[in-house]
């Protein structure tokens, strides 16, 4: 398990380098350079060349990338061209907003999805099951921005209960968290249902019943205990995707998180900020996926054992 984790964590490094290089290269390809806006008509050719050299524009792109990554490791991603503030500081100041929203959404999503999924699985084949799975299917078919806008219209414009954007109050969390939680719950419900269905037909539940375990405990302890393994993966993935894809919800609700930060940067052609924002989000995403993977191994004793130090395992 330990060696497996180390291997996976080490593999993180080339992945991050490759992915960030691709992003960096793409951003670098963009027409126009950092210095374009600094060039004034009074500048001589030498001045311009000097300015370009100052930003390493006379060197190959790989050189700039290497330098960029070296500074990234030190938490220095340059300064925003628009505000002049450090990219790292800007990002880390906005990140809690995104994380908080994602966590609240996740709680809402799981709170809806777990009972619904279990309910559907227990009533598999009945009208209740069809109804639940149908709603979940509609849920995964709805674009989050559209759902968000409908909620916004209903509960912010039509009935004025919740603010339409972030204003520092807890109430402003409600609409975005419900929107994003609803999206998460749709796919998690499906996952919960299928995981439970798979577990419900297992023989060990019969063993538990034969022991005299009550039906409630069968579901909660024995069935859910096993079904949780795939569900945890699903939930972890949801969290990773909601952090990386936060831009959509944040656009709808004007949420001052990392998504908004990045998109504003792109729109204002603030390349250092855009590049830094995207690469940091990527690293975050990849790390989340890794954590989900490790968590999966941690929850399932069967997988855990595969990586355990050799011990007597099977002896009749």
């Amino acid at each position: 398990m330990f060696i497996y984790s180390i291997k996976r964590i080490l593999w993180l490094i080339p992945t991050i380098i490759c992915v960030s290089f691709i992003i960096y290269a793409l951003m670098d390809l963009a027409p126009g350079t950092v210095v374009d806006s600094m060039i004034t008509s009074e500048m001589t050719k030498e001045d311009i060349a000097e300015l370009r050299a100052q930003y390493d524009l006379d060197k190959p792109m790989v050189y700039r990338y290497g330098k960029y990554m070296l500074r990234l490791v030190q938490g220095d991603l340059g300064k925003s061209q628009v505000s002049g503030l450090s990219v790292w500081d800007l990002y880390t100041s906005r990140f809690p907003m995104t994380l908080r929203l994602a966590l609240v959404s996740l709680c809402i999503g799981v709170a809806i999805a777990l009972p619904l999924g279990i309910f559907a699985a227990l009533h598999s084949g009945t009208i209740w099951d069809n109804l639940t799975t149908g709603i979940a299917l509609i849920g995964i078919s709805m674009p989050s921005f559209w759902t968000g806008l409908l909620l916004l219209f209903a509960f912010s414009y039509h009935i004025k209960i919740f603010p339409s954007g972030y204003n520092g109050t807890l109430a402003s969390y409600v609409l975005p968290a419900v929107t994003s939680g609803f999206m998460m719950s749709a796919s998690t419900t499906r996952q919960t249902r299928s995981a439970m269905l798979e577990v419900l037909r297992q023989d060990y539940l019969r063993t538990a019943r034969a022991k005299g375990v009550s039906e409630r405990m069968i579901i909660i302890k024995h069935a859910l205990g096993n079904a949780l393994i795939p569900i945890i993966t699903q939930v972890g993935m949801m969290l990773a995707f909601s952090l990386a894809g936060s831009v959509v919800i944040e656009t709808v609700f004007m949420w001052p998180g990392i998504g908004q930060l990045t998109i504003e940067a792109i729109n204002r052609r603030d390349t250092p900020l855009a590049c830094g924002g995207i690469i940091l989000t990527l690293i975050l995403f990849i790390t989340m996926l890794l954590i989900v993977d490790l968590l999966y191994a941690l929850v399932d004793p069967r997988i855990r054992a595969q990586f355990a130090p050799a011990r007597r395992r099977k002896s009749a």
Partner: peptide, 28 residues
Amino acid sequence: KHNELKKVRGKDVSMIFQDPMTALNPVM
């Protein structure tokens, strides 16, 4: 009833199943 049944199962009458490979809860 279910409530009384669960007191009898495992206490007064128990059962051993055919396939031991699947009869045990893998995560307990």
